[in-house]
């Protein structure tokens, strides 16, 4: 339950609560190293980062709540640019301010940079090797499964009301089957969310969002 979560901040969305007492403080070099590792194991695009990100920051370090991880993905997807960089900057900024954002973004970029430079300068033939191709296919297939499990774990936290289930299913259909751009899906969801909150608030004669 949300109410049972000590980090639940009733005054606003999760990503804005700065009073997380159970959260561990992480040093800047440690944050850099975490994102270095995340960058190294992001194979097949930014979304491949999500399972490790969720496991590390929400479950292991408890620096972010499950909702904050979701907010990070949502905001990062709706902004222009590189998804992995957006997510790294978001988390770095949340955990250790602007310096944290720099450490996280630099950390996530370095593996890409070094490996591409090495691939061009030294190891021209490595991509042709059967074992290397097999390893990459293996990781890509594994990533599909890992993201699936992560989606279920996050869904268990987020999806409570019928409204939320319908929104999830609609987004899966729109983006996954009909190929609607993610930005439109998120903008639409924001508008529907506001309308739903206002209507639900009026029905209760108070206003859910305004509860202190």
């Amino acid at each position: 339950m949300r109410a049972a979560d000590p980090r639940y901040n009733r005054n606003g969305p999760y990503f804005m609560s700065r009073n997380d007492e159970s959260a561990k403080q992480v040093s800047l070099p440690a944050l850099f190293l975490v994102f270095l590792k995340l960058g190294l194991f992001t194979i097949g695009g930014g979304m491949a980062m999500v399972p490790q990100m969720q496991q590390l920051f929400a479950e292991e370090y408890k620096m972010l709540s499950q909702e904050e991880v979701i907010d990070c993905i949502a905001v990062s997807q709706s902004l222009p640019g590189v998804l992995a960089i957006n997510m790294a900057t978001f988390i770095g900024r949340r955990v250790r301010g602007v310096r944290g954002a720099v450490c996280a973004a630099v950390g996530v970029v370095i593996p890409s940079f070094v490996i591409i430079c090495l691939a061009v300068l030294v190891l021209d033939q490595i991509g042709e090797m059967k074992a290397v191709q097999g390893a990459f296919t293996g990781v890509k297939a594994a990533v599909c499964g890992l993201i699936l499990v992560t989606a279920f774990r996050l869904g268990k936290q987020i999806l409570k009301s019928p409204f939320e289930w319908v929104m999830m299913a609609a987004a899966l259909l729109a983006a996954g089957v009909f190929g609607v751009n993610v930005v439109w899906v998120i903008l639409g969801a924001a508008v529907l969310g506001i309308i739903y909150t206002v209507i639900a608030g009026e029905r209760r004669g108070g206003g859910k969002g305004a509860s202190k």
Partner: peptide, 21 residues
């Protein structure tokens, strides 16, 4: 409450988007 409302719509949708990824 508008930001809160927007995120109440965006969060479930993000689960769907992760699924579509």
């Amino acid at each position: 409450r508008y930001v809160e409302g927007a995120f109440s719509g965006i969060r479930p949708v993000t689960i769907g988007l992760i699924g579509s990824a």
